[in-house]
Amino acid sequence: EMEYEEITLERGNSGLGFSIAGGTDNPHIGDDPSIFITKIIPGGAAAQDGRLRVNDSILFVNEVDVREVTHSAAVEALKEAGSIVRLYVMRRKP
């Protein structure tokens, strides 16, 4: 069973403070093209906020749908998102 969360982060000097993997051209798990959080960087915006978790998958960055995009398109969406970034994420319920 999945749960969904909308997380708004303010981009810090060091960016959003997380790493991603995945994409249609580089699936992270099997042939699932989802964009997954692979690392939360200590002291970064995501770590300070505390809600984003490793293995969360990002569905939307602001209004941009990143469910079926290449890795570089997801990176671009995050880069272009401005200083306030709304992430709509999905994760397995614990």
Score class of each variant (00 low, 15 high):
63 E>D: 11
67 R>K: 14
69 V>M: 09
11 R>H: 05
39 K>R: 13
46 A>R: 01
12 G>F: 09
4 Y>M: 09
1 E>W: 00
83 S>H: 14
18 F>T: 04
24 T>E: 13
18 F>N: 00
4 Y>C: 03
90 M>Y: 03
44 G>P: 01
93 K>S: 13
84 I>E: 09
17 G>L: 05
47 A>N: 05
3 E>D: 11
25 D>F: 07
79 K>P: 01
94 P>H: 11
12 G>L: 09
47 A>W: 06
18 F>G: 00
26 N>Y: 13
2 M>Q: 02
64 V>L: 09
70 T>E: 09
79 K>R: 01
17 G>T: 01
83 S>Q: 06
38 T>P: 02
31 D>E: 11
24 T>I: 06
45 A>Q: 06
13 N>S: 10
67 R>F: 03
81 A>K: 09
6 E>T: 12
38 T>F: 15
1 E>S: 02
63 E>M: 06
39 K>S: 09
65 D>I: 06
13 N>K: 06
12 G>Q: 08
81 A>C: 07
31 D>H: 09
19 S>P: 01
31 D>G: 06
61 V>N: 00
5 E>H: 13
30 G>L: 12
54 V>P: 06
65 D>Q: 15
82 G>A: 11
68 E>F: 01
77 A>W: 10
8 T>H: 15
62 N>M: 03
10 E>Y: 05
94 P>R: 02
78 L>C: 07
52 L>I: 12
45 A>D: 05
58 I>G: 00
47 A>I: 10
43 G>Y: 12
86 R>P: 05
20 I>W: 13
6 E>Y: 15
37 I>T: 06
13 N>A: 13
13 N>R: 13
26 N>L: 11
23 G>H: 04
31 D>V: 09
21 A>L: 10
57 S>C: 13
67 R>V: 09
36 F>K: 09
6 E>P: 03
40 I>Q: 01
81 A>G: 06
37 I>E: 00
17 G>E: 05
63 E>T: 10
32 D>R: 08
64 V>I: 07
54 V>T: 07
44 G>A: 11
38 T>K: 12
87 L>Q: 00
80 E>A: 12
89 V>K: 10
88 Y>G: 01
71 H>L: 04
9 L>F: 10
91 R>C: 14
15 G>W: 07
59 L>C: 15
20 I>M: 10
46 A>S: 08
25 D>I: 05
19 S>L: 02
7 I>M: 10
7 I>H: 02
8 T>I: 12
30 G>E: 08
46 A>M: 04
53 R>K: 11
22 G>A: 02
52 L>F: 03
74 A>P: 01
22 G>Y: 14
21 A>N: 05
74 A>G: 12
73 A>L: 09
36 F>C: 07
9 L>N: 01
27 P>C: 11
93 K>N: 05
67 R>H: 15
35 I>G: 01
71 H>W: 13
68 E>A: 12
15 G>T: 15
84 I>P: 13
77 A>I: 07
72 S>L: 08
87 L>E: 00
47 A>P: 02
39 K>V: 14
20 I>C: 11
74 A>K: 01
58 I>A: 02
38 T>Q: 07
67 R>W: 05
70 T>G: 08
27 P>F: 11
28 H>C: 04
45 A>K: 04
75 V>F: 06
10 E>D: 07
67 R>M: 03
57 S>V: 10
81 A>W: 02
70 T>I: 14
58 I>F: 02
78 L>S: 01
22 G>E: 08
18 F>K: 00
76 E>F: 15
27 P>M: 03
71 H>S: 11
22 G>L: 05
16 L>A: 07
31 D>T: 13
62 N>K: 05
29 I>R: 10
63 E>W: 03
59 L>S: 14
14 S>G: 15
58 I>S: 00
78 L>P: 00
42 P>W: 05
3 E>A: 06
17 G>D: 15
64 V>R: 12
90 M>K: 09
35 I>K: 04
53 R>E: 02
68 E>D: 07
58 I>T: 01
56 D>E: 08
72 S>T: 14
88 Y>V: 02
27 P>A: 06
72 S>H: 07
36 F>D: 10
31 D>L: 11
15 G>D: 11
41 I>P: 15
72 S>N: 05
74 A>W: 07
90 M>I: 07
80 E>N: 02
47 A>E: 08
16 L>D: 13
64 V>Q: 11
72 S>V: 12
4 Y>L: 01
12 G>R: 04
79 K>E: 01
7 I>R: 02
1 E>L: 00
61 V>H: 00
62 N>T: 03
34 S>Y: 10
55 N>W: 08
82 G>P: 04
25 D>G: 07
60 F>W: 11
74 A>N: 00
38 T>Y: 07
28 H>N: 09
28 H>R: 06
66 V>I: 07
46 A>L: 04
47 A>L: 13
51 R>M: 10
6 E>G: 04
94 P>T: 10
93 K>Q: 14
7 I>F: 15
69 V>G: 09
38 T>R: 09
85 V>Q: 01
8 T>F: 05
55 N>L: 12
53 R>T: 05
46 A>P: 03
89 V>R: 14
40 I>S: 01
6 E>W: 11
6 E>K: 06
74 A>Q: 01
14 S>A: 11
86 R>L: 07
54 V>F: 15
49 D>S: 05
82 G>R: 12
46 A>D: 01
80 E>P: 04
26 N>C: 03
50 G>Q: 13
35 I>D: 00
88 Y>Q: 07
17 G>Q: 12
80 E>V: 14
90 M>A: 07
82 G>I: 04
30 G>V: 09
77 A>K: 10
75 V>T: 13
53 R>F: 02
56 D>G: 00
1 E>R: 01
83 S>V: 09
58 I>R: 00
3 E>H: 03
